[in-house]
Design a protein around this nucleic acid. Structure first.
Length: 663
DNA sequence: CCCCTTTTAAACAGAC
DNA sequence: AGTCTGTTTAAAAGGG
């Protein structure tokens, strides 16, 4: 393989994601105090430029999210063609101020980010070019003017000024080139919707981390201003306008807002169909805590009368209100669909587990974790599994919302936290496969370090093999084949691979006819890493709060099913859904990986559980006994039943759900 | 601060 | 002798 030979010595930065961040830092710092603007006119400085970019990105991002969230198909978006670049509603619904950059990354899957980025980059590029052009023109003009006046002015002065201008001009050009180069380097310039392999990196490189951070921050800030409208949350109108004015004013007014098909959509849409506005009655769902609860509005109204007045004046039947209304309708619609689905699923699950289908509790549902993107973050043993075939979730297809198996990946969750631990959730089949598949493509082409540990990668590689065993060399090949990242620094990661193979008990070396092969001892693998995973509690909470929207990540569901089933009995937990369920989800989510992986090899699995896992391994070394095929598959069921049987018994729970998590 | 996991580096041994 | 494989040890980084 070229891989081997390609032992590039180029950027051998051992540090993980360094490469990514380092690149961009320049753009950021570059503009910083550049103070270049000060003198001549109120020219826009690099700093402003950056702001501009950020704003654009921000807009694009918000647009994207909202778009996805509302399900409104803006004709302009080119992702239309692209498969499942979707963001779960819940994401958009999340309390804005809580969305951190990291979470964003985690929320959006690589492909999504790519799409988003591409969009945004296209815009930015375009605008940048225009901007540069303008600037140059202006400079030239000024230069000319100066020259003309030169005659009357002291030569020295002129010389200085000219020099200054020229320098500025040069600076501009350099900046521009640099920027373009930068963009090109990342392949951003070619905004083909193909999405083939624009790596995550791209995003990060195109915008330095700082930019990104800023971007997210801005998003948060802007939205922050509107307090929590998580419920109503979809009011783009105010948001977008705020955003623009707010920041645009700071920057340069030439920011074209056109890029936001959606936002305007809500404002300008001339349609006035649905006009469900018959609020103002006794108890006003739109009024609470002295505030108007209209999406995006938080006008303070001391009393009902005032509120009514406000309502009639501010939220009369106009285009805007209508648009907002429609959005809300969509939201509700989606939620209903989702609810129905989840309910159905719950029923099936309970039935399957021999539980009384008690009340179709509508409550469990609200747990949508719209997470996606299994972006960065290491951990999550999960692995982008879906390599071979994306077994669409057994359930998912229809709803636009949920349709995104690709969008939702458990990994994201874990990622949040860190190491997570997996349990025997392997039995579950989750729809994430497809998503992973996507990610897989991504990692294959993007020189991005996969967010998985060596151990999980190795395991995956081995499990993916026909007979679940690979030679060291085959493992190497798998790495290089699957991840662009591992096509360099071979010595380093190979050493790591060997090290991992030797170090972890879960990897068993088996003497084979033609040599030695490595296999995976699932039991051991599951055992390791007792440390509880902790997804960022915040994120979790956010998701929950923002939740109620979006789709329930299958993986989470699986996790939920696994770990929480026993808890379903407890009304408290169920109702509260938030805390408890969240945690539970957490607990399980890392399992996804395994789940996924299994899905892969098996090809398909029933939503319930797929018994046959990679059960049989070629045990050799030590204790072969325990893990007979028969035993494995049982785990889930066993666990469940055990739990069911002994509600009070902590045994299993302890393992799966550390006390704290249950808290 | 301690513990644990993961990653990276590197030394070393045995086999080919 | 050089390369591959495997095993170990150590240290640093990150998180809980």
């Amino acid at each position: 393989m070229m891989v081997e030979s390609a032992t590039e010595t180029i950027r051998t930065t051992p540090s993980n994601q360094n490469g990514v961040s380092s690149l961009n830092s320049q753009s950021d710092s570059g503009g910083r105090e550049g103070g270049s603007n000060g003198d001549t006119n109120g020219e826009v400085s690099p700093v402003d430029l950056l702001h501009l970019q950020q704003q654009q990105a921000l807009q694009a991002a918000r647009q994207f999210l909202l778009q996805q969230a509302t399900g409104l198909n803006s004709p302009s978006s080119n992702e239309a063609k692209q498969p499942p670049v979707q963001v779960p509603v819940s994401v958009a619904m999340m309390t804005p101020q809580m969305i951190t950059p990291q979470q964003m990354q985690q929320i959006l899957s690589p492909p999504q980010l790519q799409a988003l980025l591409q969009q945004q980059q296209a815009l930015m590029l375009q605008q940048l070019q225009e901007y540069y052009k303008k600037q140059q023109e202006q400079l030239h003009l000024q230069l000319l003017t100066q020259q003309q006046q030169a005659g009357k002015q002291a030569k020295e002065q002129l010389g200085n000024k000219q020099l200054a201008f020229q320098q500025q001009l040069i600076q501009m050009q350099q900046l521009q080139q640099q920027h373009l180069l930068n963009l090109q380097r990342q392949g951003l310039v070619s905004l083909q919707p193909s999405q083939g392999g624009v790596p995550m990196q791209t995003l990060q490189q195109a915008m330095c981390p700082a930019d990104l951070q800023q971007l997210w921050k801005d998003v948060a800030n802007v939205q922050n201003a509107e307090d929590n409208m998580k419920h109503e949350g979809l009011d783009l109108t105010t948001n977008s306008s705020n955003t623009t004015s707010y920041s645009a004013s700071k920057v340069s007014p030439q920011i074209p807002h056109h890029s936001l098909p959606n936002g305007q959509n809500s404002v300008h849409t001339p349609k006035r169909e649905s006009s469900s506005h018959e609020e103002h009655t006794g108890s006003h769902p739109l009024y609470g805590h002295g505030e108007c609860k209209w999406p995006g509005c938080e006008a303070l109204c001391e009393d009902m009368g005032q509120f009514i007045k406000h309502l009639n004046s501010e939220h009369a039947l106009d285009d805007r209100s209508t648009a907002q209304c429609r959005v809300q309708m969509q939201v509700v619609q989606q939620l209903e669909i989702q609810l129905a689905k989840e309910s159905e699923r719950l029923q099936a699950m309970m039935t399957h587990l021999h539980m009384r289908p008690s009340e179709p509790k509508p409550f469990n549902q609200p747990l949508n974790l719209a997470s996606s993107a299994s972006l960065l973050k290491r951990e999550s043993d999960t692995f982008p599994e879906g390599l071979p075939h994306p077994p669409t979730s057994a359930t998912a297809p229809i709803t636009p919302l949920r349709q995104g198996p690709s969008v939702i990946s458990s990994s994201s969750l874990h990622s949040v936290g860190g190491p997570i631990r997996r349990r025997n959730s392997d039995k579950f089949c989750t729809p994430i496969a497809s998503e992973l598949a996507q990610n897989h493509e991504f990692y294959k082409n993007a020189d991005v370090r996969p967010p998985f540990t060596y151990a999980s990668l190795i395991r995956h590689a081995i499990l993916e093999a026909p007979d679940r065993q690979l030679t060291l060399n085959e493992i190497y090949n798998w790495f290089t084949r699957m991840f662009a990242y591992f096509r360099r620094n071979t010595a380093t990661w190979k050493n790591a691979v060997r090290h991992n193979l030797s170090l972890h008990k879960c990897f068993v070396r088996v003497e084979n006819v033609k040599g030695a092969v490595w296999t995976v001892d699932e039991v051991e693998y599951q055992k390791r890493r007792p440390p509880k995973m902790t997804g960022s509690p915040t994120l979790v909470k956010n998701m929950i709060s923002g939740l109620g929207y979006g789709s329930l990540n299958a993986s989470y569901q699986a996790a939920l099913a696994e770990s929480s089933l026993p808890l379903l009995n407890s009304p408290t937990l169920v109702n509260t859904s938030t805390g408890a369920s969240m945690n539970m989800m957490h607990v399980g989510h890392d399992d996804v990986s395994s789940t996924v992986e299994q899905v892969n090899s098996n090809g398909s699995c029933s939503p319930g559980l797929s018994p046959q896992q990679y059960g049989h391994q070629v045990h050799v070394k030590e204790e072969p006994a325990e893990l007979e095929e028969d035993n494995r598959p049982v785990s889930l069921m066993a666990t469940v039943s055990q739990n069911l049987a002994l509600p009070g018994d902590e045994r299993e729970l302890e393992e799966e759900i550390p006390a704290e998590e249950l808290e």
